[in-house]
Design a protein around this nucleic acid. Structure first.
Lengths: 213, 213
DNA sequence: TAGATTGTTAATCGATTAACAATC
DNA sequence: TAGATTGTTAATCGATTAACAATC
């Protein structure tokens, strides 16, 4: 029986970055934590610590085998298995995400969309059906769906989330600019673009202030 | 002369969340840090500390005036001024973001797109022109654009970023699943969906493991 | 072997939270 | 006034980084 080492959220979020970088390299070779750190602007100890949670380890003087490390990361991140998901809200953003083929590589497959708008219900987006909201609980239960993606307007986000939880969903990826509350055991990952923009905007303002001095 | 209090990245990223929440309330009233904390699942001291960096302050026994607090947050986050931006990459995601009207509320206006694909160059996306990549530097310099949004494939991200920096851009919002390197003084904000997915996927796996026990 | 590199233990740093005085 | 609530100082917690022993 194996008990997975506890991995912090910060570490977990860096792992895909390592994987991205490694995939740009020749698989037939080795790389040291120092090289990885330098390429990604991180500390080399941090890289080693992060990788130690995932990998069978590197070799002193040699580094990590790139092919093995890629395999370990993919395995750890669950990219080898596929999680089916539903999209709630099929506006511009929802449709764009439904059409994005890259998610498959990360083990995510959006299998259907749900929306309240009559214009879009019954249509297909990149070959995926769009159903009316009422069908959501039955659909998810039947297919055993565990991930819901929300791209509705803010005021509909909590209601959508409630419906998803009713449908037995265990993880919610929330693109709506709203806080949503879930019951214990359900994970919410917010992709709040306003929060990212706050950083950009502040940076620009600070630069402007410096110029004015 | 005012010198802005130093605000941590974590605090800065929470501010839009407060604003979102406050906007769902009646402006004519007051709210305590405890109530805000409870609604957003945060610690009340943290809320007070965050808000102290932004606001003229609350009143003991009364709390914060909602209207004032909203105004302070908007001012601090720069939502009252508009930053023009260009989109590099006008695929599904790029076009969806160009069409998203919500950014205006956050002080961001995407004024044009750039792409290498002949099919899309010359067309319009939600009334915004799409130009060939070659035009990017001249366009940005002429209009004084300081923000670039990247939604190209991973392998084109660094090249796009270099072009943006050449064009004098000061902040990059990177949606491509790739690390990009910038020179000092330029800010990169990564919106790496793979990193978010890592958290969702891990949560599902852990739940599954627990069930199997 | 000598030296590069890993992996781990200890120190540092920063963010969160607890305690509490100030205030309306 | 009494008590609710703010704002701040001190304590705690966790993440990052430095130091260093182990190893190939």
């Amino acid at each position: 029986m194996e008990y997975s080492q506890q991995v912090s959220v910060n570490t977990l979020q860096r792992l895909p970055t390592y994987l991205n970088y490694l995939k740009t390299l020749d698989e037939n070779g080795n790389i040291s934590s120092t090289e990885i750190a330098k390429a990604l602007g991180l500390n080399d100890v941090q890289v080693r610590k992060d990788l130690s949670a995932v990998s069978s380890g590197g070799r002193p003087k040699v580094g990590y085998n790139i092919r093995n490390l890629i395999a370990d990361l993919k395995e750890f991140l669950g990219y080898n298995s596929v999680n089916d998901a539903v999209m709630v809200g099929c506006g511009n953003l929802g449709r764009a995400l439904m059409s994005y083929r890259g998610f498959r590589e990360y083990g995510l497959r959006i299998v259907a969309g749900f929306d309240v708008a009559e214009e879009i219900v019954g249509r297909e987006v990149s070959g995926k059906p769009v159903y009316p909201m009422e069908n959501l609980p039955a659909f998810c239960r039947e297919k055993g769906i565990r991930i819901g993606v929300i791209t509705t307007p803010a005021q509909a986000a909590q209601k959508s989330c409630d419906l998803l939880m009713e449908a037995g969903i265990k993880a919610v990826w929330n693109f709506a600019p709203a806080h949503i509350t879930v019951r214990e055991g359900v994970l919410v990952q917010n992709e709040n673009m306003a929060c990212s923009l706050a950083l950009l905007s502040k940076h620009l303002n600070e630069m402007l202030e410096e110029t004015e001095k």
